[in-house]
Nucleic acid binder design. Structure first.
Length: 597
RNA sequence: CGGGGCGUGGCGCAGCCUGGUAGCGCAUCUGCUUUGGGAGCAGAGGGUCGGAGGUUCGAAUCCUCUCGCCCCGACCA
């Protein structure tokens, strides 16, 4: 049992002016955290207590499938040179030198270290599979820390890594993590959704994120209200309605048309009296190709063509051409590759590469243009467009791929579903990922298989953002007075508020009650401060404790009040029944966050 | 990095434009009263005005540089 009067819980009546999202404001107002620098926070008593409960749940569940390690946070350069990420991580990596001048970095993830253990210790398929995890501080020099604990430069992550003999084994390790993650987030009381995610430059085969819907989130999720389809917008696909093609003009071949002041899609559509879906849009990029084996990185022209009413999905485009980065083309580059100005770019007559990201221009055409007819496109000449353009007949491409972003209201891609996709903002609390052979291969991890042949183990990596669980929980449960956490992760389960400590009878009743509750194993906070009742009620509402017991005048007749923070409901309970009542409430709530074993 | 904004007691702000002894609310401390939704009265303490340089008789205020923080875009747990 803890006494509020002895604790450091610096609650604030007002939030700092620069806090924008609810969780940021309340974490500070409730005395959970204090800021030390951009994206760097002190965790105070209540905050640390809640994080410790989250860590406890994560550890308990992870122990069901893996083994806990604890790796260093300060890491030598050499490992990262081997994996190619010393340069690949760029400015996101905190770097430092030791007294001898040797390069070190602060760990932002631990594939390299885990793989180094695996390669020096694992020798036989008989030792596989292995799942190793740790709960540890990560350092990432984010370009823009923001929103309190949502995006920070130092945070706690549970990261795990699996080593399997083959792809089937990896599938199993992946599925084990999927199941355990669901248990963890359920026990933490999060309303989460698992979505398909982009596997990006990491080159893995499957990637799934665990997301909690909130407007504070930075990701966009497309989901189907009918079936269970859900995907990060970076990855999401949809089924398009067929488009009514326009009739050809003249002999049906491309025809040059004078189109003054028609640089915008809308004005082109207006000019030709067509839907933007019958116009070909061009977005021109420069794509970054990572230099192989010590060679410098290079930029190459990438022209993307898609329907006028669609938007380029840069994540998909990068994946399609294998670029490490994209930027838009400068005017002089447009002139070089297209001989034409922005607004009048088109695919007809363009010379393109056979392979992406080589000398010359890489032309990428979105799938939705396949089989289309009689389209309008820029003529690569100021104030001119072409009509009657047919993909394949009038122009070709380096590659055709899905490079567009889906829009809300488009049809779900699942066969025979028919649902309309909705798009919502969410925060990522976990990510599970089939890595493949990238690290085991490059760093030389090998084991002998059943036949005595040397093989490379296949890896997976899996992360949970500890602080993000707390942040997401606050985002999903708050009102103007504060927030409430599920009992499983709240710093205390119940606060016993003595309305007037100068009344000895109330004080004694509160003491006795708090002792009794604590004796049953509940986390009890006794508010024994010499403050007015209103102050204590306000504080109790603020700090995230799910239950409150008011010890007031009704004690004289043997009653106290039990208040549930979430619904702000209060009932009178006989003193003799209160311990049982609280236990029952907590048990009922626990049922909601219970997981099957 | 590009764009925008802000730095004045612990927190929230005013003062700056038009230079002239730094103010308000909350919080803190003392005393008395009060005690079920952030109490009242009386008194007290606390600020190199982010930092450096400059202009001026005189700078929180004007100029230059610099540091920090927040927000919007490219990354990720």
């Amino acid at each position: 049992m803890h006494r509020w009067s002895k604790l450091f819980i610096p609650t604030l009546r007002e939030a700092p002016a620069d806090a924008e999202v609810a969780s940021h404001k309340f974490l500070i107002r409730a005395g959970y955290i204090r800021q030390l620098g951009a994206g760097i926070y002190n965790y105070l008593f209540l905050g640390q207590r809640s994080l410790n409960k989250i860590i406890g749940i994560v550890r308990e569940e992870m122990d069901q499938i893996g083994q806990e390690f604890f790796l260093p946070a300060i890491l030598p350069k050499e490992l990262w040179i081997e994996s190619g990420r010393w340069s690949g991580m760029g400015d996101n990596m905190f770097r430092l030198k030791d007294r001898k001048g040797a390069d070190l970095c602060l760990g932002m993830t631990h594939e390299e270290v885990m793989t180094s253990i695996a390669r020096s210790e694992l020798r036989s398929y008989k030792q596989l599979p292995q799942i190793w995890y740790q709960i540890q501080t990560k350092f990432r020099d984010e370009p823009r820390p923001k929103s309190g604990l949502l995006r920070v430069r130092q945070f706690t992550m549970k990261d795990s890594y699996s080593f399997d003999i083959d792809a089937a084994g990896l599938d199993k390790s992946f599925d084990l993590h999927d199941a355990v993650y669901r248990k963890i987030f359920t026990r933490c009381g999060l309303k989460f959704v698992a979505v398909e995610a982009d596997s990006g430059a990491m080159g893995g085969s499957q990637s799934q994120e665990f997301m909690v819907y909130t407007d504070a989130g930075e990701d966009l999720i497309a989901s189907c209200p009918v079936c269970d389809y859900a995907a990060n917008l970076e990855k999401a696909t949809s089924r398009l309605e067929p488009v009514a093609e326009v009739e050809p003009t003249g002999d049906g071949n491309p025809e040059l048309v004078h189109t003054p002041d028609c640089a915008a899609i809308a004005s082109v559509a207006e000019f030709f009296k067509i839907s933007p879906a019958s116009d070909i849009k061009c977005v021109a990029y420069m794509g970054l190709k990572r230099g192989q084996s010590g060679k410098p990185d290079t930029w190459h022209g990438v022209a993307s063509f898609l329907r006028g009413d669609h938007q380029v999905n840069e994540t998909k485009l990068m994946g399609a051409v294998g670029a490490a980065d994209l930027r838009t083309m400068l005017p002089e580059e447009l002139e070089l590759f297209f001989k034409g100005p922005a607004g009048y770019l088109g695919p007809v007559g363009l010379k393109h590469n056979e392979k992406p990201l080589e000398e010359g221009l890489t032309v990428v055409v979105d799938q939705s243009l396949e089989g289309r007819k009689n389209l309008v496109a820029g003529a690569n000449k100021s104030d001119y467009h072409l009509r009657n353009v047919i993909p394949g007949r009038d122009f070709t491409w380096t590659l055709m791929a899905d490079i567009r972003s889906v829009n809300e209201g488009e049809a779900c891609p699942t066969d025979n579903c028919g649902g309309k996709l909705v798009v919502g903002k969410a925060v990522e609390v976990g990510h599970i990922f089939k890595l493949g052979y990238k690290y085991s291969e490059s760093m030389g991890a090998r084991v002998l298989d059943l036949n005595g042949k040397q093989v490379t183990p296949i890896m997976g990596s899996y992360g949970i953002g500890i602080e993000r669980i707390l942040t997401a929980a606050i985002e999903q449960s708050n009102d103007e007075n504060g927030f409430w956490l599920p009992a499983s992760i709240a710093p205390f389960t119940v606060v016993v508020t003595v309305t007037n400590v100068s009344d000895a009878a109330l004080r004694d009743a509160g003491e006795k009650l708090a002792e009794e509750l604590a004796a049953t194993g509940l986390d009890v906070l006794l508010d024994d401060r010499n403050e007015r009742a209103g102050v204590k009620f306000k504080d109790a509402d603020l700090v995230g404790i799910p239950y409150r017991i008011n010890v007031g005048k009704k004690v004289a007749s043997g009653f106290i009040e039990l208040v549930s923070r979430d619904k702000a409901t209060s009932i009178d309970v006989a003193l003799a029944d209160i311990v049982a009542q609280v236990k029952q409430r907590v048990a009922e709530e626990a049922l909601l966050t219970a997981v099957e074993d």
